[in-house]
């Protein structure tokens, strides 16, 4: 069986840095279009796909992803359909897939069952927006048992003491929250986030990927200059999907073109 943690490690070992982690909300705007968007993201050069499993109350997300969550849920997305979507995509692609979601959707399915089902569908990593280190134990334990990488988040306000604990559990990559705030495109790169990257990289060999607020090729270049192992781009992709709601073919083309600008 596929070992998610090893899949992510292998892609970091093989590809030129910084890798691109491309995010979309699973099932946005509908199941079929979403599958084609994921396929296009992979074809356009995304190194890792991050899929949001939509939750009714996404407190870490800004308005763009909130709206995408609602569109996806209205079109029938749920945990079972997410697993279908990953399986269908996985039949033709080996690219690592990471799920971003919220605690309650995992707990409601049963933590062990969620991770077992995720591993069977071909999911490689899970990041939970509202599970900090303090609450992470049952989730990281289930991740370890299934070979899934428990992706941990760090932020500029994370203390040294807590950082040590987080890094001891982290695998796959470390999600560096690059702004004090929710998801959504911003300009520039904050010094506090750059300092955090340096601080984390000194203490671990696990790759570090800044996310939140990254949307332009210039920001990607800047992070590359600072030595980021990957960058995570989300809201800027989701915004393009939203712009082309009535014309999915054009939307898929726009997402592909956008990802290519980030890779050059």
């Amino acid at each position: 069986m596929r070992n998610g943690k090893e899949q992510i490690e292998a892609v970091f070992a093989a590809k030129k840095k910084p890798l691109l982690v491309a995010f979309t909300v699973a099932g946005d705007p509908d199941y079929k279009t979403s599958l084609r968007i994921i396929q296009e993201m992979a074809a356009a050069g995304a190194d890792i796909i991050e899929l949001g499993l939509p939750f009714s109350d996404p407190v870490a997300d800004g308005p763009v992803i909130q709206r995408a969550d609602l569109r996806a849920m209205d079109a029938g997305m749920n945990t079972d359909r997410l697993l279908d979507l990953v399986q269908e995509f996985r039949a033709e692609s080996k690219i690592p897939i990471v799920i971003l979601t919220y605690a309650n959707l995992i707990m409601r399915r049963g933590i062990s069952k969620f991770y077992a089902d995720a591993a069977a569908a071909g999911i490689d990593g899970v990041v939970i927006a509202d599970v900090p280190f303090e609450e992470s134990e049952p989730f990281t334990k289930a991740a370890e048992e299934t070979g899934i990488a428990p992706i941990m988040m760090v932020s500029p306000t994370t203390s040294d003491e807590r950082l040590a604990g987080i890094l001891a559990k982290a695998a796959g990559f470390i999600y560096l929250v690059a702004v004090m705030g929710v998801t959504g495109a911003r300009t520039g790169v904050e010094q506090a986030a750059v300092d955090l990257l340096t601080r984390v990289q000194k203490q671990t060999s696990v790759p570090v990927a800044p996310g939140f607020g990254i949307s332009t090729p210039d920001q990607v270049k800047e992070w590359a200059g600072h030595g980021a192992d990957a960058v995570i781009v989300g809201s800027a992709i989701v915004k393009r999907i939203e712009e082309y709601i009535g014309d999915p073919d054009a939307g898929i083309v726009a997402v592909g073109e956008y990802i290519r600008t980030l890779k050059t």
């Binding site: 407190v59 870490a60 605690a103 927006a129 509202d130 599970v131 900090p132 280190f133 303090e134 609450e135 988040m153 760090v154 932020s155 306000t157 994370t158 203390s159 807590r162 929250v177 004090m180 705030g181």
Partner: peptide, 25 residues
Amino acid sequence: MKLQTRFGEYGGCYVPETLIAALEE
């Protein structure tokens, strides 16, 4: 956190990492 964060099995601190420092404060 210095204190027990739960009432029996209920309670806890299910928030984004960014908020932990504020809750500790």
